[in-house]
């Protein structure tokens, strides 16, 4: 019952009590007039709100980024659904609910709603909330409507400084004729594959040749780069600490791998969580898998890592060690032969 309904119920009860005690017709009339909206609202209020179906496509977004969601709403009750407000707690927190126009039974309607998921996560089900106070606002009907659709909220990108990446690749052997400018350098053109990042396509040459070609750079970006995302907490560190740094580290990991992929490098990523997981990112498909993994990642208690997991990285020339759990002095870093760049210490 809404506050308006509660007040009216109190007034009607008082008037009804006075009419009952005193038998006064005016009091009876007042009670009847006050009770009428309650009766009408109770009888005519929207029922079977939960019979409304909300359909939504799988969505992949970044934490904090605004996106426009397309919803299909279909009411499966007997009467038209009126004055219904829709909201989704996860993506519409702090923003007003959305008022839907009247919906006829079994007639789907599509709407666009601006949403924003603030928390990195991977949800298998979207949960929408429908509320209506139609017709007189004395009672509010509410229903929770689930919709089976993935919502993957990737970590918000934490830009890794270009200098950090370049500095890590200082030792990379560069061709003799390369320029002195930092960063990768144009080497050749090759055919563009559909699963590759379109940003590498050479627009002019593609237009001239009539097929998509992309730039191949060479220089200080190595062919294979190791990335270790360490989600372990340091020994003795309690839960609940360093969560903000962990989120930033996850964002940095995503950004780093994206940059490396863009430069044409293959990132061999090891995620050390409760169960170590390894992904080799060569193109967008693997990058998507990695980002999904990052969306689901959570900090783990401290535990040693089996040597075979790091064996692959032991021989690599460049490895980025992202200490998302705050375990900066992991002894496992010393077992790596190549250059190790530690990321995460700079985040508070």
């Amino acid at each position: 019952m809404t506050p308006r309904g509660k007040i009216l119920l109190w007034l009607a009860t008082l008037a009804g009590g006075a009419a009952w005690l005193g038998g006064d017709a005016n009091a009876r009339l007042a009670a009847a007039m006050l009770a009428t909206p309650l009766v009408i609202d109770f009888v005519a209020k929207q029922r079977r709100l939960h019979d409304t179906a909300v359909r939504v496509t799988p969505r992949r977004t970044q934490a904090g980024a605004v996106f426009v969601e397309s919803l299909q709403v279909e009411h499966r009750g007997r009467a038209p659904l009126r004055g219904c407000r829709l909201t989704e707690a996860r993506t519409m927190r702090g923003s007003p609910s959305v008022l839907l126009p009247p919906l006829l039974p079994f007639t789907p309607a599509r709407f666009e709603v601006r949403q924003r998921s603030m928390v990195r996560s991977h949800q298998l089900e979207r949960v929408f909330e429908l509320r209506t106070q139609w017709p007189l606002g004395m009672f509010e009907t509410q229903a929770i409507v689930p919709a089976a659709a993935d919502l993957i909220t990737e970590p918000a990108r934490e830009p890794v400084a270009q200098a950090t990446i370049d500095a890590a690749f200082e030792a990379e052997i560069a061709p003799r004729e390369r320029s002195l400018l930092p960063g990768p350098e144009f080497a050749a053109l090759r055919e563009h594959h559909l699963d590759e990042d379109a940003r590498g396509v050479h627009a002019l040459r593609s237009a001239a040749l009539g097929t998509l070609v992309r730039r191949v750079t060479r220089g200080r970006t190595p062919r294979d780069v190791g990335v270790v995302l360490d989600l372990r907490r340091p020994p003795g560190r309690g839960h609940g600490l360093g969560l903000r740094r962990a989120e930033r580290c996850l964002g940095a990991c995503a950004d780093l791998v994206e940059q490396l992929t863009r430069r044409g490098a293959t990132a061999r990523v090891l995620v050390i969580a409760s169960e170590p997981e390894r992904i080799e990112v060569r193109g967008p498909a693997q990058l998507t898998d990695l980002l999904t993994l990052l969306a689901e990642a959570s900090l783990a208690a401290h535990h040693p890592v089996a040597a075979e997991h790091l064996a692959e990285f032991a021989t690599m020339q460049h490895t980025f060690w992202i200490a998302a759990g705050g375990y900066f002095r992991a002894p496992d870093q010393h077992g790596l032969a190549g250059k190790v760049t530690l990321i995460g210490r700079e985040y508070p």
Binding site: R85, S97, V98, A109, F111
Partner: peptide, 11 residues
């Protein structure tokens, strides 16, 4: 108290 829901195809 509500925001705008842009109708794409209100049947």
């Amino acid at each position: 108290s509500s925001g705008l829901a842009r109708g794409l195809a209100p049947a």
